[in-house]
Design a protein around this nucleic acid. Structure first.
Lengths: 295, 295
DNA sequence: CGTGCATTGCAACAAGTGTTTCAAAAATTA
DNA sequence: TAATTTTTGAAACACTTGTTGCAATGCACG
């Protein structure tokens, strides 16, 4: 096996010291680590040909508090392996991990992997499909409420620099939906929504569809309520070790869409960008050092 | 998803026919298939936020004899996946770059790497340092203009769910800066700004410093104008193959900061989150399906 | 040949499992 | 509106789980 597994190694290392029954249990575990996670202790014992109690005793022998520790370890290992984190986890183990405040490290590794997974063939195809639809649109309406506002706004902002085809469905005093007033079948709605789904996003998307718009959705699940009313769907993970969902992969998706759209019309994009630059320059929007205070 | 999974597909296919509770259970299963194999039904139900009985009912709904069938299926799937993992990993290494339409692929790979690089020891130390400062603050003022608005707003939004210590320096009619009116030495400014740097971000940061605030900066370069006036700096890459800079790594950084802050006060965060949930629930902000039009 | 000691099997245990039943609540229909 | 059906929550069910204490077993050593 490729994976490095501290507990498994410990079992192997202390194998010789074990009594015959313990060895029999240990042998079965070492040779079937996934089974530990997948079946009950009693069944494992049955398959290994030992008494249930022997498994508990093996745990104690390994200085663990009980069999649950063994199962916990191999469950976690299997979880990671199945997620495709194995390679990264191995790297992580290799580095001198102080095991201290691993949260930041874990979050970043996980984000990196989640975005990496977006470059699998199926995701790429969906991204291209979405870019096709968006590219043909007369106007692109962008909708993202609450947590998804950041993604919607960023897409809109970048597209604004590249042209004037996008309309951001947001505004003060609940006027956000007004943008759809004159939208029609030649237009496309780009909606970003993740669980829990904002009612208004769903309602507006349904309305857009009724008005004949095509719908491109960036969402988080194959059973997202947006799927039935969308022409193109891009799925991105929002899993996180924290209390809240991550939007980093969704933002990555939106940036890729911007990139694809810009690439479809290099000349136009470049020209629009130059105009934007000039506009912002005359307004003195940007600086490279802290300006002296304007009195 | 590479593997085909008949049961998962069946769940997705019949999702629409399900009752709300069944949908909630089904949604959780579809999005966490490994968990089905790894934890008990009751725990799965707990995590999915449904009654244990609902899982059994879901099984019956799918024409299975009981929940054991569901678990059996996903256990088998996980077993196979774990076995075939090594082989597939090797394959994946081989299929490097079909070169066709590579932009999306390249962008995602690059983003994944950029975020991965953030988990190097130095970055982690800076993140911890920034979290320390932010954690002690009486109030946290968040400032991000133009392209950085998305990051600033996302940070603010998440922190709002976790408590009420943050103030977003943005607003209509150029009132954004007003928030700093009563800020003082006990407060911290979190500013996000990348090249080209918005003049107003620099000005406001300088003002905040004059008022005695500590400054935490998320920026893109060791020669960023923010560095001299900041107490803690987190650098993140904005390089991109496109015409515009990427903000995905910056968003990742802000999410990690949120995570670290939440972890510093688990109890408080959890409680605040529950309150937020309740508030949003009474307002009917969220839904899991397209609601019938309100007349 | 016993004696001591680790090892093993067994039975009992509290706790947790998946399932079923039933009544209340909600949604739908008349 | 009332009547009907569907959906939901809660409790009880029989069963399995992981653990533990105790007696039986085997085995080495005087």
């Amino acid at each position: 096996m490729l994976q490095q597994d501290v507990l498994r190694d410990r079992i192997v290392a202390r194998f010789e010291e074990m009594s015959p029954q313990l060895q029999q249990a240990a042998r079965y575990i070492v040779e079937n680590t996934q089974e530990v996670a997948l079946v009950s202790m009693r069944e494992l014992a049955r398959n290994a040909g030992v008494q249930p109690a022997t498994m508990t005793r093996l745990a104690k022998f390994l200085d663990l508090s009980g069999y649950e520790d063994i199962r916990g370890h191999f469950s976690e290992a299997l979880r990671l392996r199945a997620d495709g984190f194995a390679a990264r986890a191995r790297e992580r183990e290799g580095e001198h991990g102080p095991a201290g405040s691993g949260l930041a490290h874990d979050m970043l590794q996980s984000l990196s992997a989640q975005i990496g997974r977006l470059s699998e063939p199926e995701s790429l195809a969906r991204l291209e499909g979405a870019a096709d639809l968006l590219g043909q649109a007369r106007r692109v309406y962008v909708l993202g409420l609450r947590s998804c506002h950041s993604v919607a706004w960023h897409f809109h902002y970048v597209m604004t620099l590249l042209g004037d085809r996008t309309v951001h469905l947001d505004g003060p005093a609940d006027t956000g939906a007004d943008g759809l007033l004159r939208a029609g079948p030649e237009d496309v709605l780009l909606v970003i929504s993740i669980s829990p789904y904002a009612v208004q996003s769903l309602e507006l998307s349904a309305l857009a569809r009724e008005k004949g718009l095509s719908v491109v959705a960036i969402t988080d699940s194959e059973v997202s309520p947006l799927i039935p009313i969308s022409d193109q769907v891009i799925l991105c993970s929002t899993e996180s070790r924290t209390f809240f969902h991550t939007l980093t992969p969704a933002l990555a998706v939106s940036e890729v869409l911007c990139g694809l759209l810009a690439a479809r019309d290099r000349e136009g994009s470049l020209k629009a960008l130059q105009e934007a630059d000039q506009h912002l320059a005359t307004l003195n929007i940007y600086a490279n050092s802290i300006p002296r205070r304007r009195i």
